[in-house]
Nucleic acid binder design. Structure first.
Lengths: 174, 174
DNA sequence: GTCTATACGAAGATAGAC
DNA sequence: GTCTATCTTCGTATAGAC
């Protein structure tokens, strides 16, 4: 069990905090180091660059998403929506800070991967050749769940999950 | 009919373009002036500051939203969803560039107004004392429509509108 | 209205001592 | 691992000539 220098973890924690408060692009390395009580250059001992730090924070979400769409076959829509909700709820802070900020995704060249995931999710839900109308419904279902995670992050998990999944399921059943 | 110096309008057009391509915060005044073939200081003849320029671009959307929630009484949910869809479709470029970028809203102190609009919209749809579950459904409906405008901006207006409104309406009817 | 020139600050990043 | 000091680049913004 390698212990990743405690400071590295604390830097990431503070960065996540600030990213959530004011967005990734409005957060400077100085703000991060200040809140930690260290100096800016100290950060560079733990991360190669600012991008490196940002990426390290998004990484767990990306890994989870990747695993989700990779290890799954079509069928049981309800189950898929439930598991997907669990995933985005778990990562809701990063989603608020980063995923809902297209500019950051552009900056880090992640737009293509995001589209790829969306496409594969839609395929899992609708099959390989969905109609346009079905795709729009899927957007409402998936996008709506995502918005719930952002907008109702303070409510109890189970309550939001139940209502959001129910709504998504209903839309997909039209 | 006052003609707002042609250049001012062209600056806004180019700024909108760049904001859409790469986000508000990644766009510098130099990039804007370069693409226009003028120099940076020339922009300051037409706008007091960078914020002034950004605000002037968001203004039409804000005015439309304000008028929408102000001049309307509850009832006829389908009609309300249709009109709301028309509005966000009309302003989809600005929505992609700005509204989906919380950091910009924070920077311009617009978060409160956004929340206020969302709340009034929800009240129009659900009445003054909605249950939590109903609120979550409304988030899926409204958020989902908004996502459609962003994600399917290239499809024909009527097709997206019909399917998105249908989906939203169905969710609200649960 | 638009230019050149420049002030000013803040950002990311590096060098080298401790 | 963290510091001080510094480099470099780029951002917004202003002064003043044309």
């Amino acid at each position: 069990m390698v212990k990743p220098s405690d400071t590295r973890t604390r830097i990431q924690a503070v960065a996540r905090e600030l990213f959530l408060e004011q967005g990734v692009q409005n957060t400077s390395l100085k703000q991060i180091s200040d809140r930690l009580g260290i100096t800016k250059p100290a950060l560079y001992y733990h991360f190669d660059s600012r991008d490196d730090l940002v990426r390290s924070i998004i990484q767990p979400l990306m890994d989870d998403l990747e695993a989700f769409v990779a290890g799954r076959e079509p069928g049981d829509v309800r189950r898929l929506l439930e598991d997907y909700f669990d995933l985005i709820w778990r990562h809701r802070e990063v989603i608020v800070a980063v995923l809902h900020t297209p500019a950051v995704l552009v900056e880090l060249n992640l737009m293509d991967r995001m589209w790829e995931w969306r496409k594969r999710l839609t395929t899992l839900l609708l099959g390989p050749t969905p109609t346009t109308v079905a795709q729009i419904h899927a957007t409402v279902a998936l996008g709506g769940m995502s918005d719930c995670v952002v907008e109702h992050a303070i409510l109890p998990f189970e309550e939001v999950k139940a209502a959001a999944v129910e709504a998504a399921l209903t839309v997909l059943a039209i």
